[in-house]
Design a binder for these strands. Structure first.
Lengths: 212, 212
DNA sequence: ACAATTTAATAGGAATCGCTATTTAAATGT
DNA sequence: ACATTTAAATAGCGATTCCTATTAAATTGT
């Protein structure tokens, strides 16, 4: 029969995105080294050769699963950060969104990137590099927004935007760690609210009493 | 020959503490799942049966290596925290000591506990429980110190000491993650200095302009 | 019906995983 | 010297690691 919408040959039994979603959840929960290819094929309901023909290798599957898992939320968070809101409010919403991501019901705890592959066997150094680069990019996007805020007069000219970005980056990583350890959403948001009191404020200097 | 200071039988070829130090460094660098028993025996210069007769199992070795690795610094940090210094200054020195620990030349980056075994295979859940309990205990010791500060009038009576402890706990975890990613000592200390501006201050409320 | 095309399933390979039964070596006690 | 005691080394077990050569199945084109 003529069926122009379909290719020739045996149809795929597993949708690629479904497979990536399953892989993302497994890697998210158990880490790269804690997830075996047998875990992956079993969860996807396929046999090893299918996994390798679809995704290439375990490392390549991890890369694709990472990309698949973060694309949607990464886009949303960029919109929050680049919104017309004052930078402080954008930052708060940005952090709240991350706290929500760290504590989604029915999904693994913590962040897929923030605390992933920090320790690893030598042979997995290139995998660790993937997540490290994503963490660095995340902090750079914060710094870029803060730099704009300086230019637009929302932050003092002498603001150390790099340290400010890495500080909130540390909060993000700490939230992920604590979510892995069982922290609830409300607890993470209390933590955010406290972290936001470190925001540089042009109106008042906070500590009137010298520290030394 | 009569030699009262020594036991009978073949002498140990490897000192227990030397072995634990080697194991601690390997687990620290590569994580629990990233370190194989072959890595451990090779680094110690022993054969598998010796490792198992000395330490019992991989999991038990990890427990002992953790204990060995953190005992000294844990004691020092408790002294800092319980010193007669004002709580703010004690906290600052405490965090600086951790930053130093995260960036020691010739040792693995980051903290052995703060960011360890956050993700893991199901079979290693009990190992993850070890590090999670140590992280929780670390934050509890901060909270206890802050509670005392409230009692002694160093902090406002209404201070949320639990959130305050978990906030600096998040900073500690973030520092460890960033040290793993290559952050230097000075960068971590800039981060600490910024985090310390979130310290509750009785003299002035920081944000004079309402946020909403 | 039959060839062509594409994918899945079977079966297993080489290496490594954590771990151990057995044997050998090195000390002390008599 | 020789037995006793303690620990190390040899050798390897069963299971699992990531991955693949080969075969079988399911579709389309003619």
């Amino acid at each position: 029969m003529s069926n122009p919408g379909r290719k020739r040959g045996r149809p795929r039994a597993l949708d690629r995105d479904v497979g990536l979603d399953i892989a993302a959840r497994l890697f998210w929960e158990r880490g790269y080294e804690g997830t075996s290819t047998a875990d992956l094929t079993k969860a996807m309901g396929i046999n090893p050769p299918t996994l390798y023909s679809m995704f290439g290798s375990k490392q390549e599957l991890y890369r694709q699963a990472l990309e698949f898992g973060i694309t949607r939320e990464s886009g949303r968070r960029m919109e929050i950060l680049q919104s017309p809101l004052p930078v402080y409010d954008a930052l708060r919403l940005y952090l709240y969104d991350i706290a929500d991501g760290d504590t989604q019901p029915g999904k693994p705890r913590g962040c897929m990137v923030s605390t992933a592959v920090l320790q690893h066997a030598e042979e997995n150094a290139s995998v660790a590099q993937m997540t490290a680069a994503l963490r660095e990019a995340s902090m750079q996007s914060l710094k870029t927004r803060f730099d704009r805020a300086v230019e637009e007069g929302e932050l003092p000219a002498q603001t150390d935007t790099d340290t400010l970005a890495r500080f909130y980056g540390a909060i993000i990583q700490g939230m992920s760690a604590q979510a892995c350890d069982g922290a609830c959403n409300a607890r993470l948001k209390r933590l955010i609210d406290l972290a936001l009191t470190a925001w540089p404020d042009r109106t008042v200097s906070k500590r009137m009493i010298p520290q030394n």
